[in-house]
């Protein structure tokens, strides 16, 4: 399937982009130097046990450094190291972060990034499911009531919510529901200290997740409702619908089989198109709500002491998530629309 190949190409292209950028700006050199530095630091105590003379110790370390530099390829320009860099990015073998630490205390980039993955996925998938559900339910309803008051109100709401940055809405929510009316926590994933594991822990998580999810859903569902409505309307005007009605089918059957079922592929497409937006939105919403996911990590890596490798890893991970999500939706589309099968 061509789409699958394209997706893989996307992933590779992004990796190359990342790696080339790193190379050009000299960051990849620095990173490798840092890795070497770590190794030497770890080596020093064990060497010091056997070599007593300080000068000799330094000399030995220097030799070792040069050996490492050669083995890592630092003696050659950065573009010679492209394939290895790409595979490094792919496996998240990116050394250690400067200041950021994982929850368990490790400072390996891979650990830091991967342990936050589930948190981000929780937010993303939940909000996506709600967005799709609300968007389809309301959008379809509206399509059957075109021009009515509720249709116009919701259309304007969709237009407005498209213009509102999700993260700003999140800030408003914090102002309103954390500061003004302290109903919800203003951030974090759990309270401090977190309740003991089990039901209470889970409820605490839900309590903390409520505002971020609502923010994301509000921002994405608004425009999506409009998209669904428009797609459904489009289909509802089609000839085959008139024919179906003329055939004497009940309105329920007509709307289910001849309108919705036919509108399903473009509705899925609508979801795909909004996916990038949701991804970006989740990064910012995590930041606003201090939700310990990969998005928040971006913020911490940028605003604190800049942690380039973490950012590289995050960019790669987000691209990966995006590619996988799109592939899933593409498969869904092919299932729904026989016209694109077996090209």
């Amino acid at each position: 399937m061509v789409r699958g190949i394209t997706m893989v190409l996307v992933l590779i292209a992004v990796q190359f982009l990342l790696v080339i950028s790193l190379g050009i700006t000299g960051l990849s050199d620095r990173m490798l130097e840092a890795v070497i530095g770590e190794e030497l630091r770890a080596l020093r105590p064990s060497l010091a046990e056997t070599i007593r003379d300080p000068d000799e110790l330094e000399y030995a370390l220097r030799v070792r450094r040069e050996e490492l530099q050669t083995s890592y390829g630092l003696d050659r320009p950065w573009y010679h190291r492209l394939p290895e860099m790409v595979s490094r990015v792919f496996t998240l073998d990116l050394g250690e972060a400067h200041t950021l630490r994982s929850f368990t205390g490790s400072n390996r980039v891979a650990d830091i990034v991967l342990e936050r993955l589930p948190n981000t996925m929780l937010l993303l998938t939940t909000s996506l499911i709600f967005t799709a559900g609300i968007g389809i339910a309301v959008g379809v309803r509206l399509a059957s009531k075109v021009g009515s008051l509720s249709d116009r109100i919701v259309s304007y709401f969709s237009a407005v919510s498209y213009a509102m940055p999700a993260w700003w809405v999140g800030i408003l929510f914090i102002l309103l529901f954390s500061f003004r009316f302290p109903i919800f926590p203003s951030g974090g994933m759990y309270g401090t200290p977190p309740p003991p594991a089990g039901l209470f822990r889970f409820l605490d998580l839900l309590h903390h997740a409520f505002l971020p999810i609502i923010t994301l859903v509000l921002a994405s569902a608004g425009p999506y409702i409009y998209v669904v409505r428009t797609m459904t309307l489009d289909v509802a005007q089609a000839d085959h619908v008139t024919v179906a009605r003329a055939k004497g089918l009940t309105e329920k059957v007509v709307s289910r089989r001849h309108i919705l079922r036919v509108a399903a592929p473009p509705i899925v497409t609508g979801l795909v198109l909004g996916l990038a937006g949701s991804l970006g939105g989740s990064i910012l919403v995590e930041t606003v709500f201090n939700w310990q996911g990969m998005g928040r990590l971006y913020y911490e890596a940028v605003v604190g002491t800049p942690d380039e490798m973490v950012i590289v890893a995050l960019t790669f991970m987000f691209t990966l998530i995006y590619v996988i999500a799109r592939m899933i939706l593409e498969v869904l589309y092919v299932i729904l629309d026989p016209r694109v099968r077996y090209q």
Binding site: A238, D239, H240, V243, A244, R257, H258, R261, V262, A264, P265, L336, D337, P338, R339
Partner: peptide
């Protein structure tokens, strides 16, 4: 041509 539902 268009009397038919394209996905059924």
């Amino acid at each position: 041509m268009n009397s038919f539902n394209p996905v059924i």
